[in-house]
């Protein structure tokens, strides 16, 4: 238990000492989301329609950006060997690392999303749904991304492989996340979609760490 807390604590400390990397992810998210009006025109009606989808796609890409190297540094400097030999079961250690990563990269995205929502003319309640869907959905994105990162550990083509492997699997999250906002705006109520996202989150939190740990073992044998 103490070791688990230590993994989390040092992960956050390391992230804090590399603050600029976190700012880059956030910057990427905001820039990507801001490009769409430039490409599609500034018609408020159109922007309101595509807003939730754009923010979600940007969040999807931004989380992938940092995740591709989630285990790479540990692999190169030998920490991964020590993690595998530590007193913490590897799935839990992986979950702690993913949790820390979510805290430092995805939570800022969730906090920045309302500003982007305003840019796209979403109503206050729609922005609320958007943030809720991001809070429920981004952990799933992080878990899936971690799986991709673990599978491609140390490969030369790793950087481009992770999106190819992971993006198709992230489609349901995108659909449910963007769908919840859209359903809300159509007056259908976001409840069912958010419940689905929450269910997906629970299943993934319970199952993915084992897959990630298994992938790490395969990759670092």
């Amino acid at each position: 238990m103490n070791a688990l807390v230590a993994i989390m604590r040092f992960e956050l400390l390391l992230a804090w000492r590399r603050k600029s990397a976190l700012a880059t992810t956030l910057g990427f998210f905001v820039i990507v989301a801001s490009l769409f009006p430039l490409g599609l025109g500034a018609d408020p009606q159109l922007l309101r329609l595509i807003g939730s989808g754009v923010v979600w796609v940007a969040a999807l890409l931004a989380t992938l950006l940092g995740l591709a190297r989630l285990f790479a540094a540990d692999h190169e400097d030998g920490t991964l060997e020590q993690l595998r030999l530590s007193c913490v079961p590897l799935p839990l250690a992986a979950l702690a690392k993913i949790g820390a990563h979510w805290l430092v990269t995805a939570v800022p995205l969730c906090l920045a999303a309302p500003i982007l929502g305003l840019q796209y003319g979403l109503s206050a309640s729609a922005i609320g749904v958007l943030v809720a869907s991001l809070v429920l959905g981004t952990p799933v994105l992080c878990l899936l991304g971690a799986m991709g990162a673990a599978l491609t550990l140390g490969l030369r083509a790793g950087g481009v492989l992770v999106p190819v492997l992971v993006l198709p699997l992230e489609v349901p999250v995108l659909i449910m996340g963007a769908g919840s906002v859209e359903a809300h705006m159509n007056g259908l109520g976001a409840g069912p979609w958010l419940s689905l996202l929450a269910a997906l989150l629970i299943v993934f939190v319970l199952a993915t760490p084992w897959v990630v740990a298994f992938a790490l073992r395969i990759s670092s044998e």
């Binding site: 599978l151 198709p168 395969i218």
Partner: peptide, 29 residues
């Protein structure tokens, strides 16, 4: 896309044992 991801991963890994096991995991997931 899933097929393409599987094949891309297989071709990116040189070590056959790792390629086999990683590919099997991707197919199952």
């Amino acid at each position: 896309f899933l097929y393409l991801g599987f094949m891309a991963l297989q071709s990116a890994i040189d070590d056959t044992r790792r390629a086999d096991r990683a590919g099997a995991l991707v197919a199952l997931v």
